[in-house]
Design a protein around this nucleic acid. Structure first.
Lengths: 201, 201
DNA sequence: GTCTATAACGGGATAGAC
DNA sequence: GTCTATCCCGTTATAGAC
């Protein structure tokens, strides 16, 4: 998960929601509805903030909100992926920790990926730089683990790209088939795919 | 390509556009803008038809148009994939023909996939049945080729899913990185991935 | 910082003439 | 079948009180 959600008590006493919490809600909305599909009315409902309050926090409107969500996604990646890469354990151990994180944030294949949704939206040009940075960081982290495991750099790079693309595609496919199994199977296979000793792939 | 486009002369003499041609334009618009991002104004511009004419041909509005596009995608798949599977040549030959078709319709990684875009939109529930059928047909075709090449059924099925997901994900990744190389590399690798003799994968 | 109210616009969809 | 004109609603965004 991104952060601990507000307790029910906190919600019902309408205690002030921190900006972090607001961004978490935005993250969920954009993940679910995409950029073009997300309306201010729904965002208002999901955050409990009126439109004026939203524009107070995000003067640039939806675009600002999506940028905040992308920053959050980047932060999530640093905490859950980059940190795991530089952490203790064998390459396999480290990958397993990352996969746990992915399994959680994608809810076992029932959630979409906010990156994929923003890539698919008509506003993608607005976010191209951020998307490129995040995808590059993600690929770089996987590449590093494979290299640590003895995979040659060039092959590690290709496998890392395949791993990221495989996850994105599995999420699309699972959504299209209305069956989360393709995603779950992809996650199970990803460690061996990245670290395989075989010369090809 | 889907069909031969109208000649410039035909366009400029505003000769009547066939419904097939109209659907081709719709296909392009939904591929580019997605369902939520496609506006009737843009659809009207892309087809050269006024809104009333559009509603004459598609009484259900955007939803009807998207369904026509999905039917076209299914037809495309039957012609370019299913037919190739049942055609002559070695499994590898047949796969190469399919990949040519995919390379063309995705413009070497510069175009998106209309299926992925419709999966990502908020109207996905409306198209769930069609999406499921098309993805299943696509996977089934690839599975059959692998089986023909001697790959055990269960493994062939997994690889076919991976192939479809890999293409979808590579398109997302190429768009996110603004670099079509990941897609092109994925297409190059896909035949060996499907037909490999190795026990795993 | 949040609210109510509303502006300003674009969205999908329709009526009716031709 | 296509056009012009229009409706109605949802959308983004802002104003101004509190």
């Amino acid at each position: 998960m991104l952060r601990a959600p507000k307790t029910l008590a906190a919600v019902m006493s309408n205690s002030p929601m921190s900006k972090d919490e607001v961004v978490d809600r935005l993250f969920a909305v954009f993940t679910d509805q995409g950029y073009d599909g997300a309306t201010l009315a729904e965002i208002s409902r999901a955050t409990g903030l009126g439109k004026s309050s939203l524009y107070h926090h995000f003067p640039g409107g939806k675009e600002d909100m999506a940028l905040a969500v992308l920053a959050r996604a980047d932060e999530w990646l640093r905490v859950n992926v980059i940190a795991a890469v530089n952490g203790p354990g064998t390459p396999r151990d480290r990958l397993m920790r990352m996969l746990d994180a992915f399994n959680t944030i994608y809810a076992g294949g029932k959630n979409a990926c906010v990156l994929g949704k923003l890539v698919a939206g008509t506003a993608r040009p607005l976010f191209q730089r951020q998307l490129r940075e995040i995808f590059s960081r993600w690929i770089g982290a996987l590449e590093k683990v494979a290299v640590d495991a003895g995979v040659p750099q060039r092959i590690a790079r290709s496998r890392a790209e395949d791993a990221v693309a495989g996850i994105q595609g599995a999420l699309i496919l699972s959504a299209g088939l209305a069956d989360s199994e393709p995603f779950r199977r992809r996650l199970r296979a990803i460690v061996d795919d990245l670290l395989a000793k075989a010369p090809k792939r």
